[in-house]
Nucleic acid binder design. Structure first.
Length: 452
DNA sequence: TAGCTCGTTGGACAA
DNA sequence: TTTGTCCAACGAGCT
């Protein structure tokens, strides 16, 4: 019996439910990845993420070769490709792990219905700790506040043993043709990606190593040190988690295991697991409120009086030329490495949406294109939280002051100097005090105009 | 059921 | 220089 394992955002061999169950059930396994270049508004792959995907697919293929198989690459619309592959190989089962953004969920539902005419289809959860519909309030509606949500999650139990990596994945006896990875065109023509990728190691092995290095190096101090962008105190697991090179269950499992031997790291690592929880919560909200992909959850914000004629200001923000050192440092870190420290993400987002009064969607789009860890749910959630229009949002008067933030979290200026060596940088593009007051005034205008 | 406290990440201002 | 208070208002969850 032959089974197709359709890889999507689960580019790993360990703790991969679809792969695990396919290997147990089938004598021959066809590992497949489909690149669908059709432009859609929600699932378009940003330039930096495309580069990561290229390397991740390469790593997955290498790992598959080590256990006797190869990754089959195809390009185009998923359903006809799967149907053709089933017809050509006589496969009788298709396995995949679910992807939880609304567009993928509805597409997969259609594909499942169509494929069930000709074969068995099995889908699994391999990217979330729990299914989003499993955890609800006592009245049956979804949580909108993180703390009670996370408490309920912990109470119901988030730990389980990760599935082992199959020691051997039997290849089909008749080889299946594959397109070349280069034909996907994921790498840019002008190779700006080489210096960016010098900051990263891609693939399942690197992802696990990253976690295992992080736990002893930074686990104990995580709670406080993670706020200081000059320190390498955060896990940097986000791109690995996004592409599924490691699962959140694996992160939780290894963290708990580490804690049994290093109980002193308890406080720090509870906060680290809480960050895994925030990732989970953003998927949870996106599943329950799918319209929040591009619309504010708080309906009052759908007619927020944003500033006009801001093209030039947006451009200066993107290029890291705002004249505010910590903002410019963050935007340049993003440009050079495909990643930005979490605290700095909040600072630059607050600056864009509040001091410049530019819609959060503009910032969300730029992040989507330039981050290697772009994750629809986390990105949308984070931006809405900062803009004050999402679930559990920051109060409207919470406007970060970039000068005070750098004094508090980069007092020695190490982070700023690393990315803005030409200090003092250009003159500020906006007056902090005046722009803060302008934002507060406009937020007051929409207050009381009705809520969700 | 009513009443109460609390809520990831802050800043300005007065004392 | 540091510390306390206020900046809204609503849903979650407890008593």
């Amino acid at each position: 019996m032959t089974a197709i394992v359709w890889f999507r955002q689960d580019l790993r061999l360990s703790d991969n439910a679809a792969l695990y169950h396919a290997c147990r059930a089938a004598g021959q396994v066809i590992p497949l990845f489909i690149h669908d270049p059709t432009p859609t508004t929600v699932s378009q792959l940003g330039a930096a993420s495309s580069v990561w995907l290229h390397h991740s697919l390469q790593a997955l293929d290498t790992d598959l070769q080590a256990v006797g198989n190869r990754l089959v690459l195809r390009q185009g619309e998923a359903l006809p490709i799967l149907q053709a592959l089933i017809a050509a190989t006589g496969a009788t089962r298709v396995y995949w792990n679910r992807v939880y953004d609304p567009a993928s969920l509805s597409r997969d539902t259609q594909i499942k219905a169509a494929l069930r005419q000709v074969c068995e289809v099995h889908s699994f959860n391999a990217s979330l700790l729990k299914e989003p519909w499993e955890v609800l309030k006592s009245d049956g509606t979804p949580y909108k506040v993180f703390t009670p949500y996370w408490k309920a999650m912990l109470k119901s139990g988030i730990q389980r043993l990760p599935l082992p990596s199959p020691p051997h994945i039997p290849a089909p006896t008749v080889p299946v043709a594959s397109e070349s990875l280069e034909s996907f065109g994921l790498l840019p023509r002008i190779r700006w990606d080489t210096p960016m990728m010098a900051h990263w190691q891609v693939g399942e092995t690197a992802a696990l190593q990253r976690l295992l290095d992080f736990l002893p190096d930074s686990g104990a101090d995580y709670k406080d040190a993670r706020n200081f962008p000059a320190q390498p105190a955060t896990s940097r697991l986000s791109p690995h988690l996004h592409f599924g090179e490691i699962s959140p269950q694996q992160a939780v499992y290894h963290t708990e295991h580490f804690l049994t031997q290093h109980p002193g790291a308890e406080s720090g690592l509870r906060h680290f697991m809480q960050e895994i929880g925030w990732r989970e919560f953003s998927y949870y909200l996106l599943c329950h409120f799918p319209q929040t992909i591009d619309q504010a959850l708080d309906v009052r914000f759908r007619q927020f009086p944003w500033a006009e004629n801001t093209a030039e200001l947006l451009e200066r923000w993107k290029r890291g030329q705002t004249g505010f050192p910590i903002v410019d440092a963050g935007m340049r870190e993003l440009w050079h490495t495909g990643w930005m420290h979490n605290r700095v993400r909040m600072i630059v987002a607050s600056f864009l949406t509040k001091n410049l009064l530019i819609p959060w969607q503009a910032g969300e789009n730029w992040f989507r294109d330039t981050l290697v860890d772009t994750d629809l749910a986390s990105n949308v959630f984070g931006w809405q939280w900062t803009a004050g229009c999402g679930a559990d949002a920051a109060p409207y008067f919470r406007i970060f002051n970039p000068i005070l933030q750098s004094q508090k979290f980069d007092a020695a200026g190490d982070y700023i100097r690393r990315w803005v060596p030409e200090l003092p940088c250009s003159s500020p593009i906006v007056d902090l005090k005046a722009s803060r007051e302008r934002a507060l005034e406009r937020f007051k205008r929409i207050a009381g105009s009705g809520t969700v």
